[in-house]
Nucleic acid binder design. Structure first.
Lengths: 152, 152
DNA sequence: GACCGAAATTTGCACTTGCAAATAATAAAG
DNA sequence: CTTTATTATTTGCAAGTGCAAATTTCGGTC
C-alpha cells in the first residue's frame, strides 16, 4: 500500500484543505464549519428534521443538536415543532440565516473555482460522478434510497 | 449551486464515511482515527519531525502534539531528539506500533476494496489523479514542493 | 559570548465532540 | 386507556480540539 494511492488519505486530505481554506471567511462571518454545512444544506433543501440534517451533513446526531443550539442563538436557524409528529422538529433558516448564507456563498464558489481552475468540464463531471459512486459503495447498510437521492 | 455538485460537500461526505466505517476496527485495536493517520504516515514514510507529520496528516500542530502523547503512552511511537537540531524531534514507530499497524492494514485495504468494488482500474486511477490535482489546486500558499512530493 | 529574531514544539484555556443514557412523544397491542 | 416497543431529539460526561502564548533552541550579529 502506498500512502499517495490510499483513497481515505487522498480524500480526507482534500477535505481538510477545503475546510482550512474556508475557515477564515467563515470566521469573519462568525460562523463555524459545522454551522456552514448546516446552512448550505438548509439553503438548498429547505427545512429538515434533525435526523435528516444529520444524514445530509454527516454531522453526528448529538453534535448536531448542539450545533443547532449555537445557530439558534446566533439567529441562523429556528426549530419548529412538526405539526404531525411532536417528537420531531423542523429546522429552518431564519431570514438572517439566509442572508448570511448568501453572503458566504460567493466565496465558497470562488474557492471551488480556484481549486478546479485546471479542470476541464469533463474532468469535473467525472470527479463528481466518481465521488458519488465511492460514497454509494461505502457503508451499504444505511438507507440507500435517501443516500442515492443525495448523491444525485 | 446544487448541493450534490458542490465538491467540498461531496469530498467531506466520503471522508466522513471512510472514518465512520473504519472506526469500529480501530476501536477494537484501541487506536483512534488521528493515531491511525499518524501510524500509516510513519509506516510508509519512516520517522518524521512533528511539523512534517502535521503536513502529512493534515492534523493541526498542537493537536498532533497531544495525539503523539497518547500514542507514546500506548507505546505506538517514540520521540527521539534530532541529533542535528535539538529543537526538533523525530517521531518513529515502536515495534508495537508497527505490529498494530500491520494488524489493521488488511481491514483498511478491504474497506477501500469494498468501496471501489464497482470501479474499473482506469476509474480508480482517474479518481486518484483528480484528487491529487484538486489538492494541488487548493491553498497554493503553502510550500508547494513538499505538497507535490506528497501527492506523488 | 551576550543579544535578537525566527523556528520546532508544547501548554493553558475555553470550547466542541461523540458515546451512552435520558427524555419525550408516537404507535401498536392487550 | 394502560403497557410496551419504537422513534426523534437532547443531555451528562469524559475526552479531544484549535488558537494564541510560552518554552526551548538555533543562527547570525555586534
Amino acid at each position: 500500500m502506498e500512502l499517495g494511492a490510499y483513497l481515505p488519505y487522498l480524500v480526507n486530505r482534500v477535505g481538510q484543505r477545503f475546510i482550512g481554506d474556508m475557515t477564515p471567511v467563515l470566521n469573519e462571518a462568525g460562523v463555524d464549519i459545522q454551522s456552514w454545512r448546516v446552512l448550505i444544506a438548509l439553503y438548498q433543501r429547505g427545512g429538515q428534521p434533525v435526523g435528516a440534517l444529520s444524514d445530509l451533513t454527516s454531522i453526528n446526531f448529538s453534535t448536531l443538536s448542539r450545533v443547532l443550539d449555537r445557530m439558534e442563538k446566533r439567529d441562523l436557524v429556528r426549530r419548529r415543532r412538526d405539526a404531525e409528529d411532536a417528537r420531531s422538529f423542523t429546522i429552518e433558516l431564519t431570514g438572517n440565516g439566509r442572508s448570511v448564507t448568501e453572503k458566504i456563498l460567493p466565496y465558497a464558489a470562488e474557492l471551488e473555482a480556484q481549486a478546479t481552475g485546471d479542470f476541464s468540464e469533463a474532468e469535473l463531471a467525472t470527479l463528481r460522478q466518481l465521488l458519488g459512486k465511492l460514497y454509494a459503495g461505502l457503508d451499504g447498510d444505511r438507507e440507500q434510497p435517501t443516500d442515492d437521492r443525495l448523491a444525485g
